[in-house]
Simulated assay, not measured.
Amino acid sequence: MRLLLTNDDGISAKGIYALAKELEKDHEVIIVAPDKERSACGHSITLTRPLIVKENKIKGLKSKAFSVDGTPADCVKIGINKLINGKIDMVISGINRGFNLGTDVLYSGTVSAAIEACIYKIPAMAISMEIKDNIETYDMAAKYAREILLKAKDNNIKSNIVLNVNIPLLKENEIKGIKVCKIGSRLYNNKYIESTGENNETQYEIKGMVKDIHEKDSDTIYFKEGYVTVTPLHYDLTNFSILNDVRKWF
C-alpha cells in the first residue's frame, strides 16, 4: 500500500519514527508532518500566509519526508494536493504522544489530520499511545497499527471512514485484546490561573482535571480495562436522531 503518514507532535517525534519504521517494511511510506508540535490544534488550517515546506532526511528511515510549518490538517491537504503524485491508499496519523479518547477527538490534531483525509475520500487511521510518568514507548503501538491496517485492507475499508485507535501503556501480554466501540465522554474541570506578564498585561493559563464518563461499550471504559480501542469516526456531525423533530419547528 501507499501510505501518507502525519502527526501533531512534529516530524522529529518518536511516535512517527516508530510508525514509519514498522510500516515501511511492507509499504511505501511518505511522511508529511508539522515542523514542530501542534497538539490540540483541532482541525485548523493556515489561510493567512504561505506554508513553508522542506524535504527532510530522517536518519534510520528510507521513507521520503517533508516538514510543513502548519497544522496536521495542512500537512494532509498539501500532501495530497502538491507533494505526492498518484494514489494514496491510506493516511495514518500518529503515533500520538498520549491517548485520544472520548470527546478529546474534537480537540486532537492527530484525529483531525485523519478526518481531513476522509474529506478527500481517503480512508484513514489515527493512532495514539498512552504516556505515563514520561515513559514513551511506541514499538507495540506500531505493531498494532500494522495489524489494524492489514485488517482494514482485507475488509476493504470504505473511503469515508477514520479508525481512531488507542493503545494503553501495558506489557504486550497484559493487553486483553482489541475492542471496537463508541467514543465516551471526558469532562474537564477547567480553571484559568491569572498572572501578570512582562508588559503588565493580564494572562490566563488553563489548568484543571479530567473526569472520564465510563459509558457502556465506550472507549474510555474499555481502555481503562486494558483493551486497545478502535472507534470508526466520520466528519458528518449531523444529529440524525432529532433531524425530523427540528424540521417540524419550521
Rank of each mutant, 00 (worst) to 15 (best):
L3P: 04
L4T: 09
N7L: 01
E22Y: 05
E22I: 02
E22V: 01
L23F: 10
E24L: 09
E24F: 11
V32H: 13
P34S: 05
R38P: 02
G42I: 03
G42H: 01
S44I: 15
S67G: 12
A73S: 15
V76A: 11
K77V: 11
G79K: 13
G86T: 12
I92C: 02
I92E: 08
G94P: 10
I95E: 02
G98Q: 01
V105D: 07
Y107R: 11
G109P: 08
V111C: 10
S112M: 06
A113Y: 07
A114Q: 02
E116Q: 13
I122P: 10
P123V: 03
A126T: 14
K132N: 14
D133L: 05
N134M: 02
A141P: 09
A142I: 00
Y144T: 09
Y144N: 13
A145L: 00
R146G: 09
A152M: 05
K153I: 15
N155P: 07
I157C: 04
N160V: 13
V162Y: 06
P168F: 09
I178W: 00
K179P: 09
C181P: 11
S185F: 10
L187W: 08
N189Q: 10
N189V: 13
G197M: 04
N199T: 08
V210T: 08
H214D: 07
K216E: 15
D217L: 09
F223N: 01
P232G: 07
L233K: 05
H234N: 15
D236K: 11
L237M: 13
I242Q: 05
L243D: 14
